[in-house]
């Protein structure tokens, strides 16, 4: 069997990413990676000037760290995802029965060394690494519902 090494997650803490993570702490991971699942797909017109397009907002209406205790998980039952101005999806935060390992191709370490070296090709083959282990996901299992977009205009 061809063998592809799978490296475990590096334990380097990424506190900076955690501080600027706008999601509730439960959904924060050391790398900042989180999962969001929705029925269907997000389509938007390409905007070349940006590296990303803001398509909407996530709202956790029941989440209030000032009022709720830390172990209070009722807020997980309700998440809204406003897409564009007129669509809203209702969803929830779900604890995964089986956590997901987020895997990606490992960037060859010391790439610079290889390039700067005397042309000795280092072809170690493909390697994978676990970037993060995610235990929760935001799930929108229902189709979007139309909402009025008047308030958004005034912001």
């Amino acid at each position: 069997m061809p063998i592809i090494p799978l490296h475990p997650r590096s334990l380097a803490p990424a506190s900076a990413a955690s501080d600027s993570n706008p999601l509730p702490p439960l959904l924060r991971t050391p790398s900042g990676l989180a999962l969001l699942e929705l029925q269907g797909d997000i389509r938007f017109p390409p905007a070349a000037a940006q590296s990303s397009t803001q398509v909407g907002k996530l709202v956790f209406p029941l989440y209030n760290p000032d009022l709720n205790a830390e172990d209070d998980t009722k807020w997980m039952k309700r998440v809204y995802f406003y897409v564009g101005k007129n669509q809203r999806m209702a969803g929830e935060v779900k604890r995964l029965g089986k956590p997901f390992a987020v895997i990606r191709k490992r960037e060859t370490p010391n790439v610079e060394d290889v390039v700067m070296g005397d042309g000795e090709a280092v072809n170690a083959g493909e390697e994978l690494e676990i970037v993060e282990i995610v235990k929760y996901k935001i799930l929108f299992a229902m189709r979007p519902e139309p909402v009025g977009g008047g308030v958004e205009e005034t912001v």
Partner: peptide
């Protein structure tokens, strides 16, 4: 809800160049 959309919401964006990740379920 509409007000929360303006105030407390977390902006959600989609990167134009998506990376390749795989999700491996861990029993």
């Amino acid at each position: 809800m509409a007000t929360q959309q303006g105030e407390g919401g977390v902006p959600f964006a989609v990167a134009h160049e998506l990376q390749n990740f795989r999700l491996l379920e861990l029993p």
